[in-house]
Write a protein that binds this DNA or RNA. Structure first.
Length: 519
DNA sequence: TCGTATT
């Protein structure tokens, strides 16, 4: 396919060495990429030491390397161009990596293309920017705290621009769009970032802020994970998992007599000891953390038509749930001394069935709730809301799906079936009339929770919650695709207006791609 | 508030 982009047609000569290599694409290990072969010394491409690998986003999935090549060659000789594909399915991921031989070409391409042009069939403009790998940015990315909540990106830029070139500036915002009073600022270099810290940290107090401006290097991913684990351990009353005392266990057990009894029998059977159970459970929870700080839902729905027969959703459905109203931050609330998880799942729907089933199995005395959920059938039977057909629908589709096991957890996990292999989503969009747009999603819902919520209505071929990449926060909207329009309609009927916490879902057909696009 | 994808 030839891509027509009038603004790019500058008549630069073709780079013949590239095309001459195209017939021998895989000799350097990049099976799918547009690469140079090392076979002929005269054609071995050189790239600048400081060449920039670019990330290209918003690429139509029907365009491959050879389609994209002419578009990018306008700006210089291409060293490597690789469309990203799913490792298992080979599915085009809608983005690519591009490295020019010369750094200057990358800069030119970025400024000419980034957000400047929308490729056919796309709703948003092409993205051309340095790949994340080009410096994970963590040595030049600042966290800025104690900002005034009224300050905008531009305000922050003005504050920081004197110290260097700002590549990114993002105010952290909650789902309501309100500033959280902090931001990320990424410079082009570590030195610039350091200069900003030196000059600005503690230098002033913004109106309305409780203390002076905080300017520090942003946490690395590792630090962020560690911090979350610490927070979680702290809220569980265990700052160090290895320092668990029986006293803590006893306190929980006392409050949970029923479950303690279950557990006692388990323990007596030599199955687990309480300490191991507690530690294992904690590790599970930590392992279940995703970057949102939420319990990830690694469920893997594999069955097709999963609509339980005879399920009729209530006309005015409602999940009387604390979800979405309690500032859920990945740690369930611990009010009134209850084990944390209970309140979150009080609605009878288990947003994280795999995790929950798994955890509850080993850690009954500590976390077990009124719904031990040792097995799906027990779970359904014991759910206080099991009489509700919609809830039953959910209970009926719960399946085991486990997260990756921490190594230290291996010996315990052997008592359980291996988690089914992760099956990547094969398709994003269903046929016309099968795709739903959903908003007012609870902040903590991810793809899996979204899918879980819509499984009762049919075969969900895709579910996607939009996440702010800078903050990893859900944008509280997403898509669900079914394989047939009737399921989509049933889902709209049942779920539009579905109350969760303070919010009601909006569920409607996704706008057709070319909605208001003349020609 | 309409498919966001980073080897």
């Amino acid at each position: 396919m030839y891509i027509k982009m009038a603004t790019l047609a500058n008549g630069q000569p073709d780079n013949t060495s590239l095309s001459s290599n195209h017939s021998n694409p895989s000799t350097n290990g990049h099976m799918n990429g547009l690469n140079h072969s090392p076979g002929n010394p005269s054609t071995i491409p050189m790239k600048d030491h400081d060449a920039i690998k670019l990330f290209i986003g918003q690429i139509p999935r029907n365009l491959d390397e050879k389609d994209l090549k002419p578009l990018f060659e306008e700006f210089g000789k291409i060293y490597e161009l690789t469309v990203l594909k799913d490792r298992f399915t080979g599915m085009h991921k809608g983005c690519a990596f591009l490295t020019y031989c010369e750094r200057e070409s990358a800069l030119k391409a970025q400024s000419a293309l980034h957000e400047q042009k929308t490729l056919p069939g796309m709703n948003r403009p092409i993205q051309v920017k340095p790949a994340d790998s080009e410096s994970r940015g963590e040595d030049r990315k600042l966290f800025v705290g104690m900002l005034n909540k009224q300050q905008s990106e531009d305000d922050v830029r003005r504050l920081f621009e004197a110290f260097g070139n700002i590549e990114e500036c993002t105010i952290l915002r909650g789902p309501d769009g309100n500033s959280k009073g902090c931001a990320f600022v990424k410079y082009s270099s570590h030195a610039e970032a350091q200069a900003a810290i030196n000059a600005l940290h503690g230098s002033q107090t913004m109106p309305g802020a409780s203390s002076s401006l905080v300017v520090k290097f942003a946490d690395t991913d590792k630090e962020r994970t560690m911090r979350r684990m610490q927070q979680m351990a702290g809220q569980m009353g265990m700052f160090n998992p290895m320092a668990i005392q029986f006293g803590a266990y006893g306190a929980y057990a006392q409050a949970m007599q029923q479950q303690a009894a279950i557990m006692a029998s388990v323990a007596q059977g030599g199955y687990l000891n309480p300490m191991a159970a507690f530690a294992a459970a904690q590790m599970q929870q930590m392992a279940a953390l995703n970057m949102n700080g939420l319990a990830a839902a690694p469920m893997t729905p594999t069955s097709g038509g999963s609509t339980p027969p005879g399920i009729t959703a209530p006309a005015v459905p409602s999940i009387p749930s604390p979800i979405g109203v309690n500032g859920f931050t990945g740690l369930p609330p611990q009010a009134n001394g209850q084990p944390a998880a209970e309140a979150v799942f009080a609605n009878g729907i288990h947003p994280y069935p795999g995790v929950w089933h798994q955890i509850s199995f080993q850690e009954a005395p500590t976390f077990a709730s009124s719904k031990p959920c040792l097995q799906p059938h027990l779970c359904a039977a014991q759910s206080p809301t099991a009489a509700d057909p919609l809830q039953q629908a959910y209970a009926g589709v719960q399946q085991y799906a486990g997260p990756a096991y921490p190594a230290a957890y291996g010996q315990i996990s052997q008592a359980f079936p291996q988690p089914p292999p992760m099956i990547p989503q094969q398709q994003r969009e269903g046929p016309e009339g099968c795709n739903l747009f959903i908003y007012h999603l609870p902040q903590e819902f991810g793809d899996a929770e979204l899918m879980q919520m819509f499984l009762p209505f049919g075969n969900v071929i895709s579910s996607k919650v939009f996440v702010d990449r800078a903050t990893n926060q859900s944008k509280c909207f997403g898509f669900v695709s079914f394989d047939n329009p009737a399921s989509a309609q049933a889902a709209i009927q049942a779920m539009n207006g579905f109350q969760i916490g303070m919010k009601r879902l909006k569920v409607q057909l996704k706008r057709p791609k070319d909605a208001n696009r003349p020609y």
